[in-house]
């Protein structure tokens, strides 16, 4: 006859201590991007905030440049959506493009643990002598 030993209830300090593991699950839908996002850096000189919506099957990104006290409205643009693999339906990133006339910005964005990570590739077209520049910023959702 086989006997079984029942393990006592395991004590945990957080949900991820559970076995099988529990805890945070990544959102692989387009909803991971939707909402109002604000920079985690209060002194940011880059993107102050962004509003992202999914409307009519399009991801609409509406960004605002710093300063946060008087944000510069970049207006809404439609972003391209990318999965995490050619045979996957899991949404991994978006790519948005802004043409300001005097400069262009490509925004490459993804979420990690509910933080929006945006890398921007910024190219000047105005012959001002400014160097094209790269920046990477983090945002948390406020709504």
């Amino acid at each position: 006859m086989t006997s079984f030993v029942t393990a006592p209830a395991l004590r945990i300090s957080r949900l991820e201590d559970r076995y099988p593991s529990g805890g945070y699950e990544e959102d692989w839908t387009v909803q991971q991007f939707c909402g109002d996002w604000i920079t985690t850096n209060g002194g940011s000189k880059g993107i102050a905030k962004a509003k992202i919506d999914f409307l009519d099957a399009k991801l609409i990104v509406h960004a605002f440049g710093a300063p946060a006290s008087a944000p510069i409205d970049w207006g809404p643009v439609v972003a391209g959506i990318f999965t995490d693999g050619p045979n996957s339906s899991r949404i991994r990133a978006f790519h948005a493009f802004y043409d300001f006339g005097f400069m262009e910005s490509y925004l490459q964005a993804k979420t990690e643990k509910a933080v929006l990570v945006v890398a921007s590739f910024n190219r000047f077209k105005d012959q001002s002598g400014r160097a094209n520049y790269f920046s990477r910023e983090f945002f948390h959702r406020i709504a």
């Binding site: 000189k45 880059g46 993107i47 102050a48 440049g65 710093a66 300063p67 510069i72 970049w74 802004y98 300001f100 006339g101 005097f102 400069m103 910005s105 910024n122 105005d126 001002s128 002598g129 400014r130 160097a131 520049y133 920046s135």
Partner: peptide, 24 residues
């Protein structure tokens, strides 16, 4: 040249730009 256009604060240099602007 007039004031520089900017989309965000970091588009504006903190000090005069080096000339010529050649990237290493």
């Amino acid at each position: 040249m007039g004031p520089l256009k900017s989309s965000r604060t970091e588009d504006c240099p903190d000090s005069p730009l080096p000339q010529p602007a050649q990237l290493d």
